[in-house]
Simulated scan of single mutants.
Amino acid sequence: MEAAKVDPVANDFLQNLLIGNRANCSAIARKYLEVNPSVKDLYEQVFKTSLYEVGRLWETNQITVATEHLATAITEGILNELFEQIISTEKINKKVVVACVENEHHQVGVKMVADVFEMKGWESFFLGTGIPTSELIKFIQETGPDILAVSLSVYFNFANLLKMLEIIRVHFPELKIILGGQAFVHVTGEALERLGNVIIFTDLYLLEKYIDVLNSNL
């Protein structure tokens, strides 16, 4: 199979993902943090880069869907391993609900978003995939978050996102909504305008700056 050029550490991680070696992937991640303690760099430069390449390989029929699912599961497992190391012990009185658009099946990216909020002292409710909009609305009513973060990985689900936003705004017109995900590479022009009053983040560094601004206003 032909792989695109990536950072050496990310490439090492990628190759181990593709053969399903979870132990090596975990060791690579931990060694990376020993040299560079920035979790955001690990997420962006290693995990995100590798998974985008996994997606490209799958889209071009160079790997099977089973291999793609395995790579995703391994990465998510490592996120769970690292969670206790990254959460902030200093909590602030802010909450975020983090979820995917209906019919989305990719949640690793949005889990990283939830982790960044946790690093910044927020209480993060990570709902992942498979949440109907009606149930999401009930959960928002129960928890009263300051922000709703939604992931769109596959552009095919853009219509579902628009419908979801329309319904949520009826119930929570003042709720801040932020969006992200690989699909937004393809969302431009009129499609962007149809999203209305939302903020779109293309990486975790921009998200962190946004959270820092919010935290500084407390």
Rank of each mutant, 00 (worst) to 15 (best):
86 I>G: 01
76 E>W: 08
155 Y>T: 06
118 E>R: 13
80 N>L: 09
200 I>H: 12
155 Y>I: 10
156 F>G: 00
119 M>F: 09
74 I>V: 08
215 N>D: 12
113 V>F: 04
14 L>A: 01
172 F>I: 01
33 L>M: 10
76 E>D: 15
69 H>F: 04
76 E>C: 09
88 S>H: 14
67 T>D: 10
67 T>Q: 14
31 K>L: 07
72 T>G: 13
189 G>Q: 09
62 Q>R: 14
43 Y>N: 06
185 V>W: 00
125 F>A: 06
38 S>V: 03
83 F>S: 08
157 N>S: 04
52 Y>P: 00
61 N>I: 00
154 V>H: 08
13 F>H: 05
181 G>I: 06
161 L>F: 05
214 L>Y: 03
20 G>A: 10
74 I>C: 04
110 V>C: 10
67 T>Y: 03
165 L>S: 11
171 H>E: 15
184 F>K: 05
98 V>I: 10
119 M>E: 14
121 G>Y: 14
184 F>I: 02
190 E>Y: 11
112 M>I: 09
5 K>V: 14
185 V>I: 08
14 L>K: 02
115 D>H: 13
127 L>E: 01
178 I>S: 09
126 F>V: 00
206 L>E: 15
76 E>V: 02
165 L>F: 07
126 F>D: 04
82 L>M: 15
153 S>Q: 10
159 A>I: 15
140 I>N: 10
197 N>Q: 15
91 K>S: 12
78 I>F: 04
137 I>V: 14
